[in-house]
Nucleic acid binder design. Structure first.
Length: 240
DNA sequence: GCGACAG
DNA sequence: ATCTTGTCGC
């Protein structure tokens, strides 16, 4: 079954792909980003409840002060999810709520960290890359599982924290499999836009603690997102 | 037709 | 992503 059979009023995948190809030309992953220039950093994630027509998304953005690693602000957005999940088109499903939540922030973070890929994507336009055009800030993608592109496999990095292997497609290194903690599963780091791969890797490593293989801001958004859903389901039970 | 497939 | 109990291990 094609996506158009499910959502006849929405743009078709071909149109989504054209949008990605057009924006991809404007990606810049050549800029170094110094850790000392990071004052505030945001973690972004979503959770879902329900299926099909009644699927609801919960987006949470947690902004941290990089010096104290304390949350300085949060913003959320809840709403219907209109697009099904299709590998490579995750952006069109999640970005609306991300942009809505980001618009509620009083403090504009220096950088946004996403649960998902940056340019480690078939068209170099994973959600972190695409989101940068709406957020106007550098973005970095941190995916928990590998998204295979052009039949390219990745090599497992050494078990020591900080080890990584590069993921190169068509002669271009798009991302790295990074061991953020010794002995844990690796995560896949790729710049979104406005930052280079090396800076992205260093930032992710410096923002990752021992409690999770994910950077603290992303982990916090992930937890918060499920807390939002619990509250929502509770009020649904009381209101109907 | 079958398998693969970020979240 | 989400559905789900117990269970192996530090």
């Amino acid at each position: 079954m094609q996506v158009n059979d499910i959502h006849p009023l929405l743009p078709d995948p071909g149109e989504f792909i054209q949008i990605q190809e057009r924006l991809a030309k404007q990606i810049d992953v050549s800029r170094p980003f110094r850790c000392k220039d990071l004052r505030t950093v945001a973690g972004v994630d979503l959770a879902y409840a329900g299926e099909g027509e009644s699927e609801t998304g919960f987006c949470h953005i947690a902004v941290f002060d990089a010096a104290t690693m304390q949350v300085v602000e949060r913003a959320e957005a809840v709403g219907k999810i209109e697009v099904p999940y299709i590998p490579g088109l995750l952006t069109f499903r999640e970005l609306p709520l991300v942009v809505e939540a980001a618009g509620k922030l009083e403090t504009v973070p220096d950088l946004f960290l996403f649960d998902g890929n940056g340019i480690l994507h078939p068209r170099r336009m994973g959600i972190a890359a695409h989101a940068s055009f709406f957020l106007g800030k550098p973005t970095v993608g941190v995916a928990k599982t590998y998204f295979k592109i052009a039949e390219t496999e990745y090599k497992e990095p050494e078990q020591e924290k900080g080890s990584y292997t590069e993921i190169t497609i068509d002669g271009e290194t798009l991302g790295r499999a990074v061991r953020t903690s010794s002995g844990v599963k690796s995560v896949f780091v790729s710049p979104g836009n406005g930052i280079d791969l090396d800076s992205s890797t260093k930032l992710v490593l410096s923002l990752t603690g021992s409690e999770s293989r994910l950077p603290v801001p992303v982990r916090e958004a992930d937890i918060s997102t499920r807390r939002m859903r619990r509250s929502w389901e509770e009020e649904q039970r009381l209101d109907p």
